[in-house]
Simulated assay, not measured.
Amino acid sequence: MPLTLLVVVMTAIAWVWLRSQPPSQRKPAILKLALIAGILILVLLAITGRLSLVFALLVFLFPLLRRVLPSLLSGRMPGSGGDEATVKQGNQSHVSSDILSMTLDHDSETMSGDVLKGPMAGRGLADLGESEFIELLQYCRAHDEDSARLLETYLDRRFGDSWRTDDPAGDDSEESSERKNPGHGGSLTDREALDILGLEAGASRDEIVQAHRRVMQKIHPDHGGSNYLAARVNEAKEQLMS
């Protein structure tokens, strides 16, 4: 009876943990749970004195485990293509401008970024104070419109509309630079387009379409996203499909 109760409790814990995983990580999580269950079964057999059966199983499974265990522990599906996989691990999009480098994590839907140029070069956006954000935004507006729109996107996603009350340009303009002009000034390279869609070189047309759909679901303006990022994602798809 105690053993049965233990199995039920552990199964419930495993189920709750599995449900808490992001959808993209559930298949690797299932494999990890299966591996853990197999190890526990082997331990139970050893405790009950069936060591000969344990050794026989280990001898039989060792070649297979040596091949797939590293992949299972790293969260990659066996047979997924290894180094030839075209989708980046981490499921992220990267967008850069002259002044800023920004990353959107598809799973958590959070943005992070770094300042590449100007008085705050080398600093992460997460480390900036409220007044520094406004100072950086003014610098971007004065030197690069794309950077200004990208920073406005970050501020909207992190703070909502509250930051606009501290924006000196808010009283002089009814619309932000992004709303007035959601496009950008230069064409994308293939490398930039791949970074935006979270793909690696060699991605197929089907993978490009799927990545475009996935990213647009995260940043579409109708879902509280950004006109600027949506335009960049569409441009990335057009660049890679041409």
Score class of each variant (00 low, 15 high):
P2Y: 05
L3D: 03
T4G: 03
L5T: 12
R19Q: 12
Q21G: 03
P22F: 15
Q25Y: 13
P28M: 13
K32H: 14
A34W: 11
L35Y: 15
A37R: 05
L40H: 07
I41H: 13
L45D: 00
I47L: 14
T48C: 09
T48I: 14
L51I: 12
V54N: 04
V54M: 08
F55C: 09
A56E: 12
L61K: 06
L64M: 13
L65I: 09
R66L: 14
V68M: 07
S71Q: 15
S74Y: 13
R76V: 10
M77W: 10
D83S: 10
Q89P: 08
N91H: 12
S93N: 00
I99C: 03
S101R: 11
S108Y: 08
D114K: 11
D114L: 08
P119V: 08
P119L: 06
M120H: 09
M120W: 13
A121E: 05
A126M: 05
L128C: 02
G129W: 01
E132A: 09
H143S: 12
H143F: 08
R149H: 04
L151E: 04
T153L: 01
Y154I: 08
D156F: 11
R157V: 02
R158Q: 04
G160H: 02
S162P: 00
G170R: 13
D172M: 12
E175H: 11
E178D: 03
E178W: 00
N181K: 09
P182I: 09
G185W: 05
T189C: 06
R191S: 13
R191Y: 05
E192Y: 01
L194T: 05
G198L: 02
I208Y: 01
A211S: 15
A211H: 07
R213P: 00
M216R: 10
D222E: 08
D222Q: 04
R232V: 05
L240R: 00
L240Y: 03
